[in-house]
């Protein structure tokens, strides 16, 4: 019989005589979940999954006091295990890419837009893109620009944090502060968020699809 969400933390407590059995059950569940969640991912072999399950157990036990029972315990534990797994997978993938290398890349010109059947919309988009380029240089700190560049090149925040000697939360905050500064600058120039989103409305929200 599967333990309830209420029973799991008690069984995993250091003083519980059932702790070893609970750890073994949880480890089995994590490995099963990781097999499903990482199927088809390069580098996610059996050894990797075993290692991630072990690291996840440690992290789950460390964070046990923060489990508030608002979800099933197993859902909470699997979310943590997937976080651990993806941090490790991304670290392996981005191991040889430096922020400096990204900065040295020679990207497209900002005004190089594709021909469009909607020339008015295209002009609006081009105008916003040009303005954004200007605001990035004027409103953001060099560190904020570095973080944005890395994020927009899909570099994981954990990797950015490692290379900059910061935490993932700090990197998110730097990016958030940068976006807020840009939003304020757009608003000061007379653009509302609705204006900005309207011009790019053809791109769907990733959660709405």
């Amino acid at each position: 019989m599967t333990p309830s969400s209420h029973e799991w933390p008690a069984r995993l407590a250091p003083a519980c005589i059932d702790r070893d059995a609970a750890l073994a059950e949880l480890r089995t569940l994590l490995i099963k979940g990781l097999h499903t969640g990482l199927s088809g991912r390069a580098g996610a072999d059996e050894g990797f999954i075993e290692d991630v399950a072990q690291m996840s157990l440690v992290r789950i036990l460390d964070h046990l006091p923060s489990f508030e029972g608002r979800s099933a315990f197993t859902t909470w534990a699997l979310a943590i295990a997937l976080r651990v797994a993806f941090i490790e997978l991304r670290r392996k993938h981005w191991n040889d890419v430096s922020l400096d290398a990204l900065k040295e890349q020679n990207p497209d010109h900002a005004d190089a837009t594709e021909p469009s059947p909607d020339p008015l919309g295209q002009a609006s988009r081009a105008s916003l893109i040009t303005m954004m380029h200007r605001l990035i240089q004027r409103e953001l700190t060099p560190l904020q620009r570095d973080v944005l560049l890395a994020e927009l090149n899909a570099m994981p925040q954990d990797e950015i944090a490692t290379q900059l000697g910061r935490t993932r939360n700090t990197i998110y905050k730097l990016g958030h502060d940068a976006r807020r500064a840009l939003k304020r600058a757009f608003e000061a120039a007379g653009y509302t968020a609705a204006d900005v989103l309207g011009v790019f409305a053809e791109t769907s929200n990733p959660l709405s699809s």
Binding site: I129, M132, L152, R179, V196
Partner: peptide
């Protein structure tokens, strides 16, 4: 830049 503009719009 286009992606950033969209992100700024929903910030």
């Amino acid at each position: 830049i286009s992606n950033l503009v969209r992100q700024v719009g929903i910030t």
